[in-house]
Amino acid sequence: MSEVILRTEKVGKRFGGFVALKDISAEFRRGKITSIIGPNGAGKSTYFNLLSGAFTPTAGRVEFEGRDVTGLAQHRFAHMGIAKSFQITNVFPQLTTHENIRVAAQALVSRFDIWRPRAAMTDLADKADHLLERVGLQDRRNRPAGTLAHGEQRALEIGMALASDPRLLLLDEPTAGMSPEETRVMMDLVLSLAQERTVILVEHKMKLVMGISDRLLVLHHGELIAEGTPDDIRRNEMVKRVYLGQREH
């Protein structure tokens, strides 16, 4: 099995005349936490959308486990082993936390077995319970998702993403809008999840990701300006200049 799980080769993205990303080549190592950082407007979310299949690059290619996945329909990414959690929480507020995860798991199997009786889906209910425990929400099992705190909703969304048993988990600013305590809980969860799968994290909180990342990519004005270990990035003069005057969180 290759050490590289995901690779981009000279990917670029234009929106009309605006160049959002330019010639980004990078490799993401299996079993590691890689964080993509940079100031606001650096192109982090656009790059995330290319990695997750939400956007098709206007140049270059994306490879997952050695396979060219450039331009594939987004729903196929989940079946290949890629799951994502976006910056804006996306849960069903009227359903319970357990129902949210069960629906996410059921959506995957129902595409292949539309005649499967609902009563025969006890395995999905068990899986939902396991994932609730995995993300620390087992005591919120019967609570409507809309009544959860913001950090709990983010954890629930990650639980829903895990329903596809992904080998690669993509997280877009998972701590956005969180209190310091919620942020600590989320980072502990990310570290725990990374023991079982590859994690790619998009963040603007540079200090936060320095403590948990194996590797970092730094974007600025749509270009990759640095990559390496946290120590490499701390010492990088160009990164220091980019963040000079930027308020770190």
Rank of each mutant, 00 (worst) to 15 (best):
E3V: 03
E3G: 02
E3I: 01
R7P: 06
V11H: 09
G12Q: 12
K13V: 03
F18A: 15
F18D: 10
A20S: 12
S25C: 05
A26Y: 13
E27A: 05
K32Y: 10
T34W: 12
T34Q: 14
T34H: 15
I36C: 07
I36W: 11
I37Q: 02
N40H: 01
G41Y: 15
A42K: 09
A42L: 02
G43A: 15
G43I: 15
K44H: 08
T46S: 14
L51P: 12
F55M: 03
T56Y: 02
P57E: 10
T58S: 15
A59W: 06
G60D: 07
F64D: 09
F64S: 04
E65N: 09
D68Y: 04
V69M: 04
V69I: 15
T70Q: 05
T70I: 05
Q74G: 01
A78S: 12
H79Y: 14
M80H: 01
I82T: 00
I82F: 08
I82G: 00
A83Q: 08
S85H: 08
F86H: 08
V91R: 05
F92I: 13
P93W: 14
L95F: 14
L95C: 11
T96L: 06
H98Y: 08
H98G: 02
V109L: 07
S110F: 07
S110P: 00
R111G: 15
F112L: 10
D113I: 06
W115D: 12
P117R: 09
A120C: 03
T122M: 06
L124T: 08
A125G: 09
D129N: 05
R134Y: 00
L137M: 13
D139I: 00
R140V: 07
P144I: 12
A145H: 14
A145E: 09
G146H: 06
L148H: 03
H150T: 03
G151R: 04
E152T: 04
Q153K: 14
A155S: 11
G159L: 11
G159F: 11
M160H: 02
A161R: 08
A161G: 04
L162A: 07
L162I: 13
P166N: 01
R167S: 03
L168K: 01
L171Y: 10
D172P: 02
E173W: 11
P174C: 04
T175Y: 00
T175C: 04
G177N: 04
M178F: 08
S179I: 05
S179W: 10
V185A: 15
M187A: 00
D188E: 15
V190E: 13
L191T: 08
L191E: 14
S192A: 10
S192P: 00
L193E: 15
A194H: 13
A194C: 12
R197D: 01
T198E: 13
T198K: 07
V199H: 11
L201C: 00
H204D: 10
M206Q: 11
M206E: 06
K207T: 02
V209R: 01
M210Y: 03
M210N: 06
I212R: 05
S213H: 00
D214I: 08
L217V: 03
L219G: 05
H220I: 07
G222Y: 00
G222E: 10
L224R: 14
E227P: 06
P230V: 01
R234P: 08
R234F: 04
N236W: 09
E237M: 08
E237Q: 15
M238F: 01
K240G: 03
R241L: 01
R241H: 05
L244I: 05
H249K: 04
